[in-house]
């Protein structure tokens, strides 16, 4: 089922910050010279005196943000995820995360679709890195309605945040009545065969994949995690209990991202088989959005194919295990 077109989250980012700045005098935007790409230029147009150009120097930008936070400002970082997290990691770790300062890091150009910039700008590790930092909340909204509320929650909640901001227009997944809750997963679909867990803009593709799977006799629960940290462990456990099989789908390396987070929770609380679909421990490349989603198997149809085969193999593995147990062998 095609969903109505929606705004790009970077546009929402610029618009919402501009609105919030009208109500919150503490709000500042620090830009690493990418405002025309991250959506922050919309903020500059409205609040030029609160838009601080920091130049192409991300390490210092994050340090300056920490200093601003100590004197009561709420600095929001406008940068690409690869540079905000990759280049400035030590500033984030020591000056933002350890003292739990009120700095909001928006990583633009997240995931696979980065305007054909290729592997240097495709950051598949930002979730793994940022969720490994104590004190940091990690958000990845899926569409306009959710991004709007996630940004509001980020600005109004004290402490360090990392927000993924996707570049491309995102179809509308949620209606006007949607209510984002920090730290809560959203169950978008119920099905008994498998639980699909996703986050960010990939969730919309996963929902479409679930719709395709339904026509092929596979009923999937879809769980969307707009808050990756703190993770909604209860929702994951409930879904794992209900379906017994979990597949995580994300625009991140399968090492350490949301898949890692889900595996950590379920291995602690309700061990079931967890499969991870995403960037298969490799790097990206330039290409059209369609070609990239197809090649890296993150389009709705590729996700549907892969989940279908995992479900088929998953159930045969399960049958093998039952046989092995009956025969007294360790599976």
């Amino acid at each position: 089922m095609a969903r109505p077109p929606g705004k790009a989250l970077r546009q929402v980012f610029g618009e919402v910050l501009s609105e919030l700045a009208g109500r919150d005098a503490r709000l500042l935007v620090l830009d690493g010279d990418v405002a025309s790409s991250t959506g922050a230029e919309l903020f500059e147009a409205q609040h030029p005196e609160r838009f601080l150009q920091m130049g192409i120097a991300e390490q210092n930008m994050l340090g300056v943000a920490a200093g601003l936070a100590t004197v009561g400002f709420v600095p929001v970082i406008s940068a690409f995820a690869c540079f905000a997290v990759g280049r400035a990691f030590d500033s984030i770790r020591v000056l933002v995360a350890q003292p739990a300062l009120n700095v909001k890091i928006a990583g633009g150009y997240v995931g696979l679709l980065t305007a054909s910039t290729g592997k240097t700008h495709q950051m598949f590790n930002d979730v793994a890195i940022m969720r490994s930092l104590a004190n940091v909340t990690v958000l990845a909204p899926a569409d306009e309605a959710e991004a709007r509320q996630a940004i509001e929650a980020m600005v109004s909640t004290d402490g360090p945040f990392y927000l993924q901001v996707a570049r491309e227009p995102s179809p509308q997944l949620f209606g006007p009545d949607y209510r984002f809750q920090l730290g809560r997963a959203v169950r978008l679909r119920d099905g008994a065969d498998v639980t699909l867990v996703s986050t960010g803009v990939e969730t919309t593709r996963v929902v479409e994949a679930a719709e395709m799977l339904a026509t092929r006799g596979v009923q999937a629960t879809v769980l969307h995690l707009p808050t990756i940290k703190p993770i909604d462990a209860d929702a994951l456990v409930d879904a794992a209990i209900a379906t017994g099989f979990v597949v995580v789908v994300e625009e991140q390396n399968v090492v350490g991202g949301l898949g890692g987070a889900v595996a950590e929770v379920l291995s602690d609380r309700h061990p079931v088989t967890v499969k991870r679909l995403g960037i298969a421990d490799t790097y990206g490349e330039s290409g059209s959005n369609e070609a990239l989603l197809d090649k890296y198997r993150l389009s709705a149809s590729r996700v549907a194919e892969d989940v279908e085969s995992l479900v088929a193999r998953g159930s045969s593995h399960a049958a093998d295990e039952v046989r092995a147990t009956k025969l007294g062998r360790v599976p």
């Binding site: 210092n60 920490a66 601003l68 100590t70 020591v94 000056l95 003292p99």
Partner: peptide, 27 residues
């Protein structure tokens, strides 16, 4: 302590942020 520090260079950036904040707030 007005800032944590120790990873060299970082405290300097934070101090710039503090001074910039003072300017913006007319402190």
């Amino acid at each position: 302590l007005d800032m944590s520090s120790g990873a060299l260079g970082l405290g300097f950036s934070a101090a710039i942020g503090i001074a910039l904040g003072a300017k913006l707030a007319h402190d």
